[in-house]
Design a protein around this nucleic acid. Structure first.
Lengths: 114, 114
DNA sequence: GTGGGTGGTTACCCTGTGGTGAGCGAACAG
DNA sequence: CTGTTCGCTCACCACAGGGTAACCACCCAC
């Protein structure tokens, strides 16, 4: 990622929000986070079914980025057919928790607008 | 806007996060929010100076979107040279507050990585 | 041998977002 | 009479992120 390139701060970051936005900056990332929170330890195909509309390519690349960011864990079992399980890391769980107030704000706003 | 178009939910939204992400989905929006929180009632040029690297076009369009979303207020004084003051609405202030946990998560993560 | 399910990869295209640079209208300073 | 401040607007362009679709290796059931 690192679409953010803002001068004015040492590494292009101004406040902590930037760091967080970089990590969740992807069309489906918060939903993947959410899905893994509600349904821990899901397989690739299960996640795909939990997120109607996502394509395999995007799911795979998002998962790999989130894994690299340390918010998603991946365990691959050497079976046939292959089995891979994704889960939230501790950091990912904390990220998800810190998204809750934002979700509450969004829900309230959605309610107000009917 | 409205880059989010995800089937599976009535209006393309699955949880409240989506609504919030739509509102803050813009490269500089959270920073504008932050700047207006730390420096209330700023003028266009002041905001530009507070956000090194932003261009006038992007600042103008982001401000207009945020105004339409009801999180930023705009007051134009009929003077010469023109004077326009931007501020957070109550809803914007609450949005900003609900971003705080996320910012904390980001700060903690930035600290860990040095 | 054909189809299905597993978890992907690869190549290509398309749109939206953001960046660049110019201009504008009025007043005032030099 | 040129330059500056102020808050924009407009036309154009580049690029990355996401979407589309085909393909792969493997095994099993039919």
């Amino acid at each position: 990622m690192a679409t953010l390139n803002r001068p004015g701060a040492p590494d292009g970051h101004i406040c902590g929000i930037d760091t967080a936005m970089e990590v969740i900056g992807g069309k489906w990332k918060v939903l993947i986070l959410w899905a893994l929170h509600e349904h821990p330890y899901r397989r690739f195909g299960e996640l795909r079914r939990l997120l109607p509309g996502i394509t395999e390519k995007v799911l795979a690349s998002h998962l790999r980025e989130m894994e690299a960011d340390g918010i998603v864990g991946r365990v691959s079992y050497d079976e046939v057919p292959p089995r891979v399980e994704y889960s939230l890391t501790e950091d990912g769980a904390r990220l998800n928790a810190s998204l809750e107030p934002l979700a509450a704000w969004g829900r309230e706003r959605a309610d107000r607008q009917g």
